[in-house]
Amino acid sequence: MDDLERLSSLNEERIRQLSGLEARMRELAGTGEAANGLIRARVDSEAGLSGLVIDPRALRQGSETLAEQVIAAVGAANADLRAQIDEVMREALGDAMPSTDVGDLRRSAKEQIAQIEAGFRQSMEGIMADVEKLKRSV
């Protein structure tokens, strides 16, 4: 197998690995809680905060403490979502993918897919050029 075929094969494999990655990431949701489970939050990469449950007993804390606990629950949900995204990215791209925020991960995945597709197209153009040369020489 020559270098061009190897590159083409690697690009095809990478495209297979990344296909559906964005959809898979959209399906992820992080959950977090605070105040001993009295406040629960859910976040996803599409809507951000997509769920918030406040047990009536949490309302006894006062507004400032309640606000802090809501922020803590949302922060825990965001951390859970980031951990899930990191895992999906590691599965798809290997450990070379750094952990970052949700928006950066999605942009990075799109950029990598575009680079892989460009490399694949370039490889295919090279192969087709070689085929044309062979046709002309025959």
Rank of each mutant, 00 (worst) to 15 (best):
R106I: 15
G126K: 05
Q17H: 12
S99D: 07
L21V: 05
G126F: 08
A58N: 06
K110V: 00
A29V: 07
L10H: 00
L59F: 04
D3S: 14
N11P: 09
L66K: 04
S45L: 03
E22H: 08
Q122T: 09
G126T: 10
R121Y: 08
A23W: 15
K135V: 04
V102R: 05
L28C: 04
L38K: 02
E46D: 07
A23D: 12
E87Q: 03
S9L: 08
S19W: 10
E132S: 09
M128P: 08
P98I: 06
E46S: 09
L18W: 12
S99N: 04
T65N: 06
E64M: 11
R136P: 12
A34T: 02
K133R: 06
R16H: 12
T65H: 14
Q122N: 05
M1F: 00
D3I: 13
L66I: 09
D95Y: 12
G32C: 00
M1V: 02
L38G: 01
L21Q: 06
D130F: 11
A77D: 01
R90Y: 01
I71N: 13
G48C: 00
S123E: 00
A47D: 08
R6A: 11
K135I: 02
D130S: 01
R107W: 10
S123R: 06
E27W: 14
A118M: 09
D95S: 13
P56E: 05
L10Q: 07
K135N: 15
A67Y: 15
A73M: 07
A34D: 08
P98R: 04
I15F: 11
G37S: 12
A79Y: 14
L49W: 10
V70M: 10
I71K: 13
A118Q: 04
E111V: 07
L105E: 15
P56N: 04
A109L: 04
A79W: 14
Q115A: 03
R136I: 05
A72C: 10
G30N: 01
L66W: 01
I85R: 02
G37E: 01
A67L: 14
A67K: 13
Q122I: 09
V102K: 06
I39W: 00
V70K: 03
E125H: 02
R57K: 15
R121H: 07
I54N: 03
A34H: 09
V74I: 01
Q122W: 15
R42K: 08
S19L: 09
L10A: 05
T31V: 13
D86K: 14
D3V: 07
L52T: 10
A129N: 08
D3H: 07
S137L: 15
G20I: 00
R16N: 04
I39R: 11
A73G: 01
V74E: 03
R14C: 02
G75Q: 14
I116D: 00
A109K: 07
G20T: 03
D95H: 04
N11E: 13
S108P: 02
I71M: 07
S108I: 07
E111G: 03
S108C: 05
D2V: 12
S99E: 06
R57E: 14
S137E: 13
S50W: 09
Q61H: 06
G62W: 00
L66H: 04
P98G: 05
R40Y: 13
G62R: 05
A29C: 00
V70L: 10
L105C: 15
R57S: 13
E13I: 06
Q112T: 09
V74A: 04
R57N: 06
M1I: 00
L93G: 05
N36W: 12
A72F: 15
Q69Y: 15
G75D: 09
I39A: 02
P98W: 14
